[in-house]
């Protein structure tokens, strides 16, 4: 698998490393994907890197690569953001993968080997829910709201009604709420706030987890929040050019 720039892979790693310590990457002709629970079993993370993300991609036989995210991150940090990354996994020798970083002028090339692990990852079946509410908004705006309100209180309540979407945090000595209306003024798609809902709903989540989730803002300029009563929220970052996505399912808090 060859990526034109290591930046995408670095951002993906940064988006999951606080939540997932080790995980299986499933490789098949469609691309590379992973699904993992955080240690607290409160968030399910799904990453999909489609063939479209790669400069070249070939997968003769489906393979599962057990990867420890810590050393993987250390190796990736050795790659310049603009350097080409080639990941090779041999079917005959499945105890490691090779990573090669090359910069454009090829005046520099670095090669790494990463030992693979045997991880008995249980896959969770995520039902295709029809959502009671969906919000799409700039990922940077969602990140700022979450980071700001997480300072106010550890519980983040998200309410969707005809007023728009209201984010509320409650602490011991302060409380804050921010209301977003669907934006029709701005024309740039990536700046718009769109809200659709079938019935009003209000749910509460752990702000520290939502903070970790917003790190994926580096991957996509927009984020989609999908909510349904008594269901984990799905926070989805779609990468452009159908390159793939990262989805977080965060379990709610019970009233």
């Amino acid at each position: 698998a060859r990526l034109p720039r290591s930046a995408v892979l670095k951002k993906i790693l940064d988006s999951v490393k606080d939540l997932v310590k080790e995980t299986n990457w499933d490789c098949n002709e469609e691309g590379m994907s992973m699904q993992a629970l955080d240690t607290g079993r409160i968030v399910l993370v799904e990453v999909m890197l489609r063939e479209a993300a790669f400069e070249s991609y070939a997968c003769e036989v489906p393979m599962t690569l057990g990867i420890d995210m810590e050393p993987f991150g250390k190796v990736l940090r050795c790659a310049g953001g603009d350097e080409k990354v080639t990941i090779k996994a041999s079917r005959n020798d499945q105890d490691h993968i090779e990573l090669v970083f090359e910069n454009e002028e090829k005046e520099r090339m670095s090669a790494f080997e990463l030992k693979l692990m045997d991880i008995d990852g249980e896959h969770m079946a995520v039902p295709d829910a029809e959502w009671g509410a969906e919000i799409s908004m700039p990922s940077s705006e969602f990140k700022k709201i979450v980071m700001d309100l997480a300072e106010i209180g550890s519980d983040l309540t998200i309410a969707v009604s005809k007023l728009g979407v209201t984010f509320t945090a409650q602490g011991n000595n302060c409380k804050g709420s921010m209301v977003l209306q669907p934006s029709t003024a701005v024309d740039k798609k990536s700046e718009q706030v769109a809200i659709s809902f079938t019935e009003p709903l209000e749910m509460t989540f752990a702000a520290p987890y939502m903070k970790m989730i917003t790190k994926a803002a580096a991957l996509s300029s927009t984020v989609t929040l999908s909510l349904d009563e008594a269901c984990p929220i799905c926070v989805r970052y779609e990468m452009e050019d159908n390159a793939g996505h990262i989805k977080y399912y965060l379990a709610p808090k019970e009233d």
């Binding site: 079993r41 409160i42 968030v43 969770m124 079946a125 399912y249 019970e254």
Partner: peptide, 14 residues
């Protein structure tokens, strides 16, 4: 204080 629920309450192993 609202109680944190776990993912396994909503999603079953595949």
């Amino acid at each position: 204080k609202p109680r944190q629920l776990l993912i396994s309450r909503f999603f079953a192993p595949a």
